[in-house]
Simulated assay, not measured.
Amino acid sequence: MGRSRKGRDISGWLVVDKPPGMTSNAVVGKVRWAFGAKKAGHAGTLDPAATGVLAVALGEATKTVPFVTDALKAYRFTVRLGAATNTDDAEGEVIATSDTRPGDDDIRAALPRFAGDIEQVPPQFSAVKVDGARAYAMARAGEEVEIAARPLYVDSLTMLSRPDADHVELEMVCGKGGYVRAIARDLGEVLGCLGHVESLRRVWSGPFDAEEGVSLDRIEALAKTPEIDALLHPLERGLVDLPELPTTPDGAAKLRNGNPGIVLASDAEYGDEAWASLDGRAVAVGIYKAGELHPSRVFNN
């Protein structure tokens, strides 16, 4: 028999303003320790060098992670023109250079080809699995990795500023699974000047914004104290993109037992994924059918 996981049964979302130099999993571990939480996870990895929104779910909120992961996210990043690296960011080794520098109009003209439904080849140094092994592990071993292109939805890619001839600042809003480093690499190739990401910040992720992000310093200062719980957002924040269907106490009891439960009128249509609430608190997520919610996951909330 495996050992039970120790920790508090505490649930909610914490919006961390991730500092550079840490992996996303290391941040999750720090948050779990600070709250003494039994369970924690995040909704979308950030590269170690990147900063910004890392949404960390505790307890029952981990059941809402897929809905935040699937939501749109926004990134602001600076592309260094004139050099390609083996990691497609400033952490890597320069492997090629170019003296070509495109004009502002050339950059703007190239951006639309990276919007909409596109195909993107992840960087060599990425967590993508190739023949059962992580691409970054193979790349570090000096192997040439063949990575298949993957679909990505890019809602928008816009030029924010051109600080100098060697740099351009961009903002991208995209769906899950996107690599900003690959956008910088491919843009540099299209412009004929090469390029890589010099800095990257996620400014929002689904319902969570960087302005509400909490620093690790503050989390560490409040660790293991009663005051730290005030930093949490309710788990319902992870469900804001789904229709909310109020239910009755009897309906809530049935849903919590994994059975269909009656829900009250809403704008949800037959077959929609939605969540049932009782007094504003999440009871279950499931499929709406003819006045009932058929649960796929329930909350001890």
Rank of each mutant, 00 (worst) to 15 (best):
M22N: 05
V121F: 08
G7P: 01
G59I: 12
D267A: 11
C193M: 11
P19C: 02
H196P: 02
N259T: 02
I228N: 06
V27F: 08
A137N: 15
A290W: 14
T225I: 04
G206Q: 02
E227C: 00
A139V: 01
A133N: 13
L222C: 06
E189V: 07
R297W: 06
R134A: 10
N259G: 05
A265C: 03
R281E: 15
S126G: 11
L278I: 03
V168T: 11
V56L: 05
D250E: 15
C174W: 04
R80F: 12
M138G: 06
V56Q: 03
E91F: 01
L216R: 07
G29Y: 00
D88P: 01
E143V: 10
T69G: 13
L111T: 06
A50K: 08
A139G: 01
D131R: 15
R162H: 13
Q120K: 13
H42I: 12
R5N: 02
T69M: 15
E143F: 09
A184F: 11
V240H: 03
H167S: 07
I95R: 00
T97S: 09
A284R: 02
M159D: 03
S277A: 14
Y179C: 04
V173K: 08
L187F: 06
V56K: 05
D250T: 09
V168A: 12
G142W: 06
T45S: 14
R3C: 05
E269N: 09
A34R: 03
A83T: 03
V128C: 06
A276R: 04
K6Q: 15
A223S: 14
V128I: 15
I287A: 06
A43E: 11
S296G: 12
E269M: 13
A274V: 06
E244Y: 05
G41R: 06
Y270N: 11
A26C: 11
T97R: 15
G175D: 07
Y288H: 14
K254I: 00
T62N: 07
G258H: 05
D99L: 15
A43Q: 09
A221R: 14
E269A: 07
A71R: 08
G142N: 10
K73R: 10
D88G: 00
I10Y: 02
T78W: 06
V128Q: 13
P207M: 01
V56F: 02
A90I: 05
Y288E: 10
G142S: 00
E273M: 10
A34W: 07
A74R: 09
G59S: 08
A149S: 15
V31Y: 00
R281L: 13
A115Y: 10
E93F: 04
L239H: 11
C193F: 11
A74L: 05
R80K: 14
V53T: 09
A34V: 00
S161A: 13
E144I: 09
T64R: 04
T23P: 03
T225N: 08
A133Q: 10
D47E: 12
A253D: 07
L293W: 07
